[in-house]
């Protein structure tokens, strides 16, 4: 197939999920993000540490909205975030004054590392990027960034998913652990 032919797209969009599924996805995401948000508020006032980062919103789409997806499994959720955070911090230290290049390098390398380790989790790309563009608050954390907020936040979301996604009859989580 040539380039133009490929551009047309030969596939079909998957069907829309049922209303029940939409309600459970909404509820799961609300509880998961709510839990992270509450701990964030408590930690911020007590320890001055932040727990909320943007990439958790993306993780919520996967683990509460598409819990069957291989991308949403615990191995991917935890592995993808942790490895991407390490990659992001390392790149940020390597190229401290070159944000555009560092951002590109961090995200691209995070994808490569996640592929290599079978932990592909799209929000990991955001986690790596935030390490570079997150400002002084994130830079000040150094490699601790991989543990708090990234590791701890992902763990809280995972815990909510493990409890909540197994309550409805038609849902189960995880498909596999590692």
């Amino acid at each position: 197939m040539n380039w133009r032919g490929k551009l047309k797209g030969a596939g079909q969009s998957p069907p829309r999920v049922g209303l029940e599924e939409i309600v459970w996805s909404w509820l799961g995401a609300f509880l998961g993000m709510g839990a992270v948000g509450l701990i964030h508020a408590w930690m911020l006032s007590g320890l001055g540490l932040s727990l909320l980062i943007g990439s958790f919103g993306a993780s919520a789409v996967l683990i509460y909205g598409a819990p069957k997806s291989p991308l949403a499994q615990p191995r991917n959720l935890m592995g993808g975030h942790l490895l991407s955070a390490l990659v992001g911090v390392a790149v940020c230290r390597l190229l401290p004054e070159q944000a555009p290049l560092a951002g590109a390098l961090a995200v691209a390398t995070a994808i490569a590392v996640m592929h290599l380790t079978r932990t592909l989790h799209p929000p990991g790309g955001a986690t790596a990027l935030i390490a570079v563009i997150g400002g002084d608050a994130v830079r000040g954390l150094g490699f601790v960034y991989a543990l708090v907020p990234v590791g701890l936040g992902a763990a809280v979301m995972l815990l909510v998913a493990l409890i909540f996604n197994n309550l409805p009859k038609g849902r189960r989580y995880p498909e596999f652990w590692y």
Partner: peptide, 11 residues
């Protein structure tokens, strides 16, 4: 099948 399947019918 309930739930979002992360695959196109073609795949």
């Amino acid at each position: 099948i309930k739930g979002y399947l992360d695959i196109t019918p073609g795949d």
